[in-house]
Nucleic acid binder design. Structure first.
Lengths: 264, 264
DNA sequence: GAGTGGTCTAGACCACAGT
DNA sequence: CTGTGGTCTAGACCACTCG
């Protein structure tokens, strides 16, 4: 199909430019995974392992499209994926540059459990409460349910490397009460919710701080009073309905939130 | 606190279709502003003022494209902009739905000043320090400059409605020292940096908490000890070089961070 | 002027949801 | 089945940067 193109690709710009060796292309056109995402993953890996030199520039989009055997819009979409994550920087009239440093982290609905696990910190949970109760008016208001409709209330003590790290209070509407029947001592609540068919879509988090109560300090093995990081979160599913209301308390001495923002 | 008026609103989407009256099209094809963005703004406004009914569905993309007189890809790109902000939800085989509630806020590099201003809280700053000094090794390491190269150190006391709210320490590399010559008592540091030609691109924030020091509590008009929200931030410009290192301390009783996340 | 990314078009075929 | 959004193509013209 496009084998003649390869010949023109040598653009001897004489040494001054760093030559980026792109990995062999292994696109699977039958796969469920979109081409642009396969491409983005290839490039991400190439950056990670250094085949694409940090600080250098990519070849131009049309060349890349030819090299990968896809159209320019598809190539652009792959590049955009990495730009959105802060791995690449595009400048009109100049080119696309690979960022210098590991400054980018994907933004995601933070699952504390997964974060700890990927940091090798041996997360586990002690389930302190798992019951269906009538909600406090404030909780009912957040979940947009009437106060006479029960909700699932979970309270877990999150441990990392055997040390207590956080107290996690979560409230789920009655239609999701079955989530309480799963084993929550291992794995994240989000996994359990996804397994129950919930498709989380958008979440609003508020992160603050306050003095821990005597009970909280005691549970978390801190002197009293100690400062705590607090997180409140309202998660909506893909129909726009509230799926979860969370009130979390973290030991300030052991935890902080990390967020990467990309200016659009 | 949002009102609970809509709590008992029924979904009942099956079969029934709300007819959304789209506003008259006023696209400017000569403008610098891309068509897809003009379109997105139109739709955002229509949602905001209620011409597009919350919870209802948009017409399909091809119809919309015809109605707006643009191609389908352009229409899709406009829709995607709003999906990314959590205003719309797309489902294959179903359609595009307008979210039920005001759950979406754009994610942005948080400028405390702008946030306070848009909340009508009369922000102002008292500049406590504005000097070029040799950096602490930790600061030099963050900014990737040698310890013998001076940096600009700013310390401001941020006030809101006449009350102290936060102590803002910012460090800028020497090449941006001119930012210190602008009036920083009004407006945000980010504005001043942008005015100086800095194009901020990606920032990494860490949000945590700790007990405030005696001096901090005194400056912030809090009893000692009081819990503080802390924020550290490293901002990079579009060449990937560090442009700013920030260490901020907020009164936990007066401030929290609000973040909206969209699952992709 | 040459090369880059930014925008836009007019199609095409596919996967999925609801009938 | 029909209708929806998801993906992909092969062009085109433009605005910008830089030598």
């Amino acid at each position: 199909m496009a084998s003649d193109d390869e010949r023109h690709r040598r653009q001897s710009t004489a040494g001054r430019r760093i030559r980026n060796n792109h990995p062999p292309i292994t696109l699977d056109r039958v796969s469920e995974v979109p081409l642009y995402h396969q491409l983005a993953e290839h490039m991400r890996m190439a950056i990670k392992r250094g085949s694409l030199v940090r600080g250098s520039r990519l070849r131009n989009e049309i060349d890349l499209a030819k090299a990968f055997g896809v159209s320019r819009p598809t190539t652009r979409r792959a590049i955009q994926e990495l730009v959105d994550q802060g791995l690449l920087i595009r400048k009109r009239g100049v080119g696309t540059q690979i960022v210098n440093d590991e400054i980018a982290r994907p933004i995601h609905l933070s699952s504390l459990y997964d974060d700890l696990k990927s940091d090798q910190r041996n997360p586990e949970s002690k389930v302190l409460l798992n019951q269906v109760v009538l909600p406090h008016p404030a909780v009912a208001a957040k979940l947009l349910v009437p106060t006479h409709e029960p909700v699932l209330h979970l309270r877990r003590l999150r441990m990392a490397d055997g040390e207590p790290l956080a107290i996690l209070d979560n409230f789920l509407p009655y239609r999701l009460r079955d989530v309480g029947n799963t084993d929550l001592s291992v794995g994240s609540l989000y996994h359990a919710m996804r397994a129950a068919g919930v498709r989380m879509k958008v979440a609003n988090q508020r992160i603050g701080a306050r003095q821990g109560t005597t009970k909280e300090c005691s549970l978390l093995n801190e002197p009293s009073p100690s400062p705590m990081v607090t997180m409140e979160r309202l998660t909506h599913d893909d129909s726009g309905k509230p799926a979860e209301w969370a009130q979390h308390v973290y030991r300030a001495s052991k935890y902080e939130f990390s967020i990467t923002l990309v200016v659009k």
